[in-house]
Simulated assay, not measured.
Amino acid sequence: MTSKSIKPVRKAVFPVAGLGTRFLPATKAIPKEMLPIVDRPLIQYAVDEAREAGIEQLIFVTGRGKTAIVEHFDTAFELEHTMTSRAKTLDVLEPTRIQPGNLVTVRQQVPMGLGHAIWCARAVIGDEPFAIFLPDELMIGKPGCMKQMVEAYEQVGGNLISVLEVPREEVSSYGVIAPGGKPDGFNGTLTQVTGLVEKPKTEEAPSNLIISGRYILQPEVMTVLDSQEKGAGGEIQLTDAMAKMIGTQPFHAVTFAGKRYDCGSKVGFVEATLALALAREDMGQEIRDMALRLLNA
């Protein structure tokens, strides 16, 4: 596949319809994607990563009670007027501004799995390749995870997923790839994918490379998802649909050069908050001193 024949990735799907039950009661009235990591909601980090990678259109697959996510990226006239009248800079709000027409929402009325959530965006995706961001997976790196993936995609095309290497005893908690060869010219970060296995037994896992919440897929995956075939847990699984595309289109994994925080768990959420606060120039030293005081108390 030549670079001239590779369509650019302009659209991204953010499945944000989940109930966030692991964070109750905090998420009873607030979407889990709006919980703050330091001073930005979790969804903002994913959107910033998408924009860095050149994504133009953001597609939120939402459910009941998720309006706060959309409102976060809307213009807050009263807030901006008040801040301006008090001579406060609006720079802090700049990341929340979305170009008119570039934010689309579609509804997932019934929670039937990740594959179903992605399928709900099929009319907006059309015949274009698209990215997927799972906001629970906070990926921190320079450049960001999706930008690393787009750079690889522009060379090889097809379908790509981000992966991370984990200790083998942890593989049974994740989707795992069956690796093939490593194309030249990518410093070993690109791996051909010959199969996908969801939560394998440790002794049966084909590798210790886990799928880590970022995808670039071709629109043909929607045709596979049209069948509404249910997999693990009685849900429509994206992993199953991707597995059926292996062998019909190029399929690669990009090993992310950066840090992943599992913000779908309480411990991972706290770890991310502490790590990002420590990395901040405006508060890092104070946070470090505070942590030491708490540890020594």
Rank of each mutant, 00 (worst) to 15 (best):
V110K: 12
A87K: 11
G126D: 06
F133Y: 13
V70C: 05
M83V: 01
R97H: 13
T84R: 11
L79P: 00
V70P: 06
P129A: 05
V110A: 06
I125A: 03
L90R: 05
M112G: 03
G63H: 06
A121N: 08
G126N: 07
G63M: 01
A131R: 03
P100G: 09
R86W: 08
G63C: 09
V124G: 02
L90M: 11
T96E: 12
R122M: 04
I69G: 01
H116W: 06
V110N: 10
F60C: 06
P111E: 10
V61Q: 01
F133P: 02
T75S: 00
D127M: 02
W119S: 01
C120P: 00
A117F: 01
S85C: 11
F73H: 07
I125K: 05
T96I: 07
C120Q: 14
T84K: 09
P135V: 12
V124D: 05
L58F: 07
F77W: 08
L103R: 14
L93A: 08
A76K: 12
M83W: 05
V106Y: 07
A76H: 14
T105K: 04
D91K: 10
S85Y: 02
E80A: 08
V104D: 11
T96M: 11
T82H: 04
E71N: 13
A50W: 02
P100N: 07
L58V: 06
A50M: 09
G65L: 09
P100R: 09
T67H: 07
G63L: 00
D74W: 00
E56C: 00
H81G: 03
D127A: 13
N102K: 13
M112R: 12
Q108V: 09
V104W: 01
L103P: 02
I118Y: 01
L134I: 15
D48K: 05
E56P: 00
L93P: 03
E52K: 10
E78V: 15
G101C: 11
R86N: 15
L93S: 05
G115P: 03
G113P: 03
L93W: 09
D74S: 15
G126S: 08
K88F: 12
E71I: 00
T62K: 08
E78G: 02
K88P: 02
Q99T: 15
I59M: 04
H81T: 14
I118G: 02
K88Q: 15
G65C: 09
R64G: 10
F77T: 12
E78F: 03
V110I: 14
M83E: 10
E56S: 06
T105P: 02
N102R: 12
Q57H: 07
T62D: 05
G126K: 05
A131E: 04
P135F: 03
M112F: 01
R86L: 15
V70I: 15
R122P: 02
V106P: 03
D91C: 01
L79F: 03
T67E: 15
R122F: 07
P111W: 02
L79G: 00
I98G: 11
E56K: 12
E56D: 11
T67A: 13
